[in-house]
Simulated scan of single mutants.
Amino acid sequence: MTNRNRLKLLMTASLAVAGLTACTSSSPEAGRPDTAAPSTAASSASASTPVTKSPGKPPERPAAAQGLSLAAAEAFVRYYSDLMNYSSDSGDVSAMLGASDAGCEACKAYADFVKKSNAANGLLTGDYYEHVTEVSELVRGANGRLGGSAVVTIGKYVSRDKPSASPFTTPATTYTREVALSAQGGSWVMYELRQEAQ
């Protein structure tokens, strides 16, 4: 079994334990002795704050997303969504991949897509920003990784693979993104992710 196939096993274990150790976006640290108190900004936000639609600088990791607590993991999941939004704007995937494990296949697939189709080159238009509305079920595995899920909403958008291609319209949707995080340099990085329609 490869490490990537273990994501499913980790997610299954996470869901089994979630009844006892579930963590919601309003209280990731509840009953958790190993978590730091969230910052005021992190605890008052119920959705990720999207970066501006400008191919300027990528968003910096917020202080709340630093460290290896469960509260930091929740803030990191929201921050990672902001990195994905920035990559969709600019086509620059370096910051997003820098916050990803080297073996994260879904991260690489997303990066490959937005390198070709992004707002900066005009091949991605509409309401394509992701908004994380909830992060829950954050559970530490025996291997030190952390699993959980996030509820994500996205608006209607249009994408094309190349300028001459027919446009593809994606309707507004809400989905659940299952995530697995691993520790790197004293903070969380995206180990793997996958989405499921709600």
Rank of each mutant, 00 (worst) to 15 (best):
M1R: 13
M1H: 11
N3W: 10
R4P: 05
N5D: 14
N5W: 11
K8W: 09
T12G: 10
S14M: 13
L15M: 11
A16M: 14
L20Q: 12
T21D: 10
T21R: 14
C23V: 12
T24Y: 05
S26I: 07
S27E: 13
S27P: 05
A30I: 06
G31P: 02
P33I: 12
D34K: 14
T35H: 04
A37M: 09
P38E: 04
S39F: 00
T40E: 14
S46C: 08
S48K: 00
T49A: 07
T49Q: 08
P50L: 01
T52H: 06
P58S: 07
P59H: 02
P62R: 02
P62I: 03
L68D: 03
S69F: 00
S69Q: 02
A71S: 15
A72Y: 01
A72E: 00
A73E: 01
E74A: 12
F76V: 00
R78V: 00
R78M: 02
Y79V: 02
Y80D: 02
S81W: 00
M84P: 01
M84R: 15
N85V: 02
Y86E: 02
Y86P: 01
Y86C: 02
S87P: 06
S90L: 00
V93M: 03
V93I: 11
V93A: 10
S94C: 09
A95P: 08
A95L: 05
M96E: 08
G98Q: 10
G98C: 11
A99S: 09
A99L: 02
S100G: 10
G103L: 10
C104K: 05
A106K: 12
K108Q: 15
A109C: 07
A109K: 14
A111V: 06
A111C: 09
K116Q: 10
A119P: 03
A120L: 04
N121L: 06
G122L: 03
G122V: 06
L123K: 07
L124W: 04
G126L: 06
D127R: 11
D127K: 13
D127G: 09
E134N: 15
E134Q: 14
V135K: 05
S136G: 12
E137R: 14
S149H: 11
S149A: 14
A150L: 05
V151R: 14
I154D: 01
I154K: 13
I154A: 09
K156C: 01
K156G: 01
Y157F: 15
V158H: 02
S159K: 13
P163C: 09
P163D: 09
S164M: 06
S166D: 15
T169C: 07
T170F: 04
T176N: 11
R177D: 09
V179R: 04
A180P: 07
A180N: 12
L181D: 03
L181G: 04
S182I: 06
G185V: 08
S187C: 09
Y191F: 12
R194K: 15
R194A: 13
R194Q: 15
Q195C: 13
E196W: 09
